[in-house]
């Protein structure tokens, strides 16, 4: 109950503070979240997201690529999946070995400002979903900050947190690596994909969420306010 009030309060404050819908669509996004808080997930539009970065430090490292795939009324829609590369200041360096994005691929990349614009447009009527959302959100908030303007706060459903809560409830001791995306998927007998392409990971995260929600009581019973978190 408290969480619900807290989310409502935060969202209302953000909507009031976010004047003239700047950056574009952010206010619309907040309004969507506020009106949908009490809705079951099956009635919502979600956007599963994954970002590949040059490192894990949002103050220092940069975003390299973003993959998104929407979940509309509980159905994943590959048709609207998108994948974008970002222009970066430095080099992808050693991180290329993880996400497979090399400097030479970045010629068609977009500037961070364009990406933020594009992403906010994508999610103006959608709820963000990510695995270990904290990391992705930190990078996005950092980008918003760089674009000028007040500190913006973002909200997301985090499949890692959902899994952690579930394991904690079962009083299971969580070992190192057990909350990784593929480790979580294995627990639901979902197929294992080769990781670290932003789009593949976004799909993997979307499927994991559906599996988790079904275990938690079903998409028509779980409401947005039960699982949305502020960052």
């Amino acid at each position: 109950m408290f969480q619900q009030w807290h989310l409502q309060y935060k969202l209302k404050r953000l909507i009031n503070n976010t004047k003239s819908n700047k950056p574009t669509h952010l206010k619309t996004h907040y309004q969507y979240l506020l009106t949908q808080l009490h809705q079951p997930i099956v009635n919502l539009n979600l956007l599963a997201l994954d970002i590949e970065m040059t490192g894990l430090n949002h103050k220092k490292d940069e975003m390299v690529s973003i993959g998104v795939i929407p979940i509309i009324n509980g159905q994943i829609k590959p048709k609207y999946a998108q994948y974008k590369l970002l222009k970066i200041q430095g080099s992808v360096g050693q991180s290329a070995t993880i996400h497979g994005v090399h400097d030479r691929d970045l010629t068609e990349a977009l500037a961070t400002s364009e990406i933020i614009e594009w992403l906010l447009q994508q999610c103006q009527d959608k709820v963000l979903v990510a695995h270990h959302a904290l990391l992705d959100i930190q990078f996005l908030e950092q980008a918003l900050l760089k674009l000028g303007g007040p500190i913006q706060q973002l909200f997301a459903i985090d499949t890692l947190q959902l899994e952690k809560q579930r394991l904690n409830r079962k009083n299971q001791y969580i070992k190192n690596g057990e909350l990784r995306l593929n480790a979580c998927r294995e627990r639901y007998h979902l197929p294992i994909y080769s990781a670290h392409n932003a789009l593949t990971d976004a799909l993997a995260c979307a499927e994991l969420l559906l599996a988790q929600l079904n275990k938690m009581g079903g998409l028509d019973n779980i409401k947005l306010q039960d699982i949305l978190r502020k960052y």
Partner: peptide
């Protein structure tokens, strides 16, 4: 075909 698909999760509880 891949683009035209939608992906749905079915649970035993349904």
């Amino acid at each position: 075909c891949c683009k035209a698909l939608t992906i749905v999760y079915y649970s035993k509880s349904q």
